[in-house]
C-alpha cells in the first residue's frame, strides 16, 4: 500500500498537466492526451475516497461525482462557449444528484430549477445575442493556462490534505464531534417531511435573512434594468440592438 500522500501528489501533478493540455492554447494539440491524464488523475484521486459502505450508494456516488467533476472540466476547457454552457448544465445535474444523495432533496430540485432552468438559459440567451458566430479568438486562447491549471489543482490538493487532516481522528485542532446516528438523522435532516422542516427553518429562524435575500433579488432586478438602459443608448457603433 503506497503512501496516500504520494498518490495524492501524483494525482495533482497528473491533473495539472492534463488540465493544461485540455485548456485552449491556440492551435496546440494534445487534448486527448490531456483527457486521458485527467481521467487517470481522477481515478487516482477517487482511490483515496473512503466510500459510503454500501455498494449501491458507492456506485451512485462515484458515478455522480465523476459526472459532476468531468462535466465541470469540460465546461472549463471547451473552446465553444455554447458547449461550455451545456457541459455546465451536465455538471449541475451531477451536483443535483449528489445533493439528493446527501439528503437534501429540496436543494437538488432547486438547483436544477434555478440553475439549469433559469440561469443557464439566460447564459445561452446572452451568448446567442452576443456571439452568434460561435468561437471567438479569445475562446481559442487561455490566459496563462499552465500557471492557472497548476494553481487550481494545487488548491484542490491543499484542500484535500486539509480535509483529510481535519477529519482524521488525531486532528488536534478540532474538538471531537460525535457523528450523528441514523436515528438522530431520521429525526433531523433526513426526516421524511424534511422539506416542510426546511420551510419552517427558513421562515422561522431565518425569516429576516429570507426577507433580505428577497430585497436583494429586487434590487438586482432593478439594477440590471438600469444598467442595460443606461448604457445601451451610448453604443459606439450606433446600432440600436435591443436585448
Amino acid at each position: 500500500m503506497p503512501d496516500p500522500r504520494h498518490i495524492l501528489t501524483l494525482a495533482v501533478l497528473l491533473g495539472a498537466v492534463g488540465l493544461w493540455l485540455m485548456l485552449p492554447r491556440g492551435g496546440a494539440r494534445g487534448r486527448a492526451v490531456g483527457a486521458v491524464l485527467g481521467i487517470v488523475a481522477l481515478g487516482l484521486w477517487f482511490s483515496q475516497f473512503h466510500g459510503l459502505g454500501q455498494w449501491t450508494a458507492d456506485g451512485m456516488f462515484f458515478v455522480l461525482a465523476a459526472i459532476a467533476v468531468v462535466a465541470a472540466v469540460g465546461a472549463v476547457t471547451s473552446r465553444n462557449p455554447v458547449y461550455c454552457a451545456i457541459w455546465f448544465g451536465l455538471s449541475l445535474l451531477g451536483t443535483a444528484g449528489l445533493l439528493l444523495l446527501v439528503g437534501a432533496q429540496f436543494l437538488a430540485v432547486a438547483t436544477v430549477l434555478v440553475y439549469a432552468g433559469a440561469i443557464l438559459v439566460m447564459f445561452l440567451f446572452v451568448l446567442m445575442v452576443a456571439q452568434p458566430e460561435g468561437k471567438a479568438s479569445c475562446d481559442r486562447m487561455s490566459w496563462e493556462a499552465g500557471v492557472s491549471a497548476a494553481a487550481g489543482i494545487a488548491m484542490v490538493g491543499v484542500l484535500s490534505v486539509a480535509i483529510g487532516g481535519i477529519l482524521s481522528p488525531s486532528c488536534p485542532a478540532m474538538p471531537p464531534i460525535a457523528p450523528p446516528t441514523q436515528e438522530e438523522l431520521a429525526a433531523g435532516v433526513l426526516d421524511p417531511h424534511q422539506v416542510a422542516r426546511l420551510g419552517d427553518e427558513l421562515f422561522g429562524r431565518r425569516l429576516i435573512a429570507v426577507e433580505v435575500a428577497g430585497t436583494l433579488l429586487l434590487a438586482a432586478l432593478v439594477g440590471a434594468a438600469v444598467i442595460v438602459n443606461q448604457f445601451s443608448g451610448r453604443r459606439h457603433d450606433g446600432q440600436q440592438r435591443t436585448v
Binding site: L19, L23, P24, W45, A65, A68, V69, A72, V73, A75, V76, T77, P81, C84, S91, T95, A136, C138, D139, M141, S142, W143, E144, A145, S148, A149, A151, G152, I153, M155, V156, L159, S160, I163
Partner: peptide, 16 residues
C-alpha cells in the same frame, strides 16, 4: 473541493 478548484482554473484562465 474538486469542483471549486476546476471552477477556479476556469475563472483564471478563460477569457470569455
Amino acid at each position: 473541493a474538486a469542483l471549486f478548484g476546476v471552477g477556479l482554473i476556469g475563472f483564471v484562465s478563460r477569457r470569455n
